[in-house]
Amino acid sequence: MFRPMVLAALGIALAAGLVLSAVQTLHVSPIIYAAEAFEIEQPEIAAVIHSDHGHSHTHSVQAWAPGDGFERIAFTVLSNVLSAFGFAIILLAAMLMAKDKAQLNVSWQRGVLWGLAGYLMFFIVPALGLAPEIPGMEAAALEGRQSWWVLAVLSTGLAIASVVFLPGIAKAFAIVFIAAPWLVGAPQPQVHGFLHPDAQAVATLTDLQAQFLYATAIANAVFWVILGGLTGYTAKRLVQA
């Protein structure tokens, strides 16, 4: 089953990753580029401010980065497809396990529901604690945010699984999993917003940040519905084979 699953996930990833790339290139990336224009203008100020409170900034002048334009978009498309592969094979394994152990049916319609669960788990709940960022936005140290992100994803997954698979009153365990990331608390920066010295730039960046929330929420919703539907369809084909 492993080999067919990998091949199926690759096909799903190619389709969902390319749709995501199209939506992203039109509606998400332009906001990132616009925010970066402010970041590049003030590198020395950013460096001074960041070193003040031990912020780990991973940009290095020497490190390779894809050139703007085609190269950057190509690497983004590749990263999208690889991420989609990761999400698709996890979703496929979960669907087939649920079919095997809990006799849950598989179909493209059920797949869309799985996709919405993935959207909630991997985007909505983590984003409620750690808002999607544009470059230049202040944020707490990276490691703490990554750990909280993983906690939010896992506990949301367990909450959804509790509601779907546990019998009767045991479903209430979901409350523990829903509460867990908020009891820990998402790491917050010392200063919120943008530390750009120009007030006009801060206003523009704040506006870009608001646009970015909507753009990513919509792009990820489209991505997860397509990914879920295709994975459900594929799971049915794999089970019948």
């Binding site: 998400v28 990336s29 990132i32 900034h57 940009h59 980065a65 690497f75 999208n80 944020a139 792009a219």
Partner: peptide, 28 residues
């Protein structure tokens, strides 16, 4: 997913930068 979204090396970060931001993976 860890490789694309969380690998700390600058090269991995730069190559997957826009993807990380789009998925709202913690970045920078």
């Amino acid at each position: 997913l860890m490789g694309v979204g969380f690998a700390p090396m600058d090269v991995a970060h730069n190559a997957a930068h826009d993807t990380r931001h789009s998925f709202a993976f913690p970045c920078h």
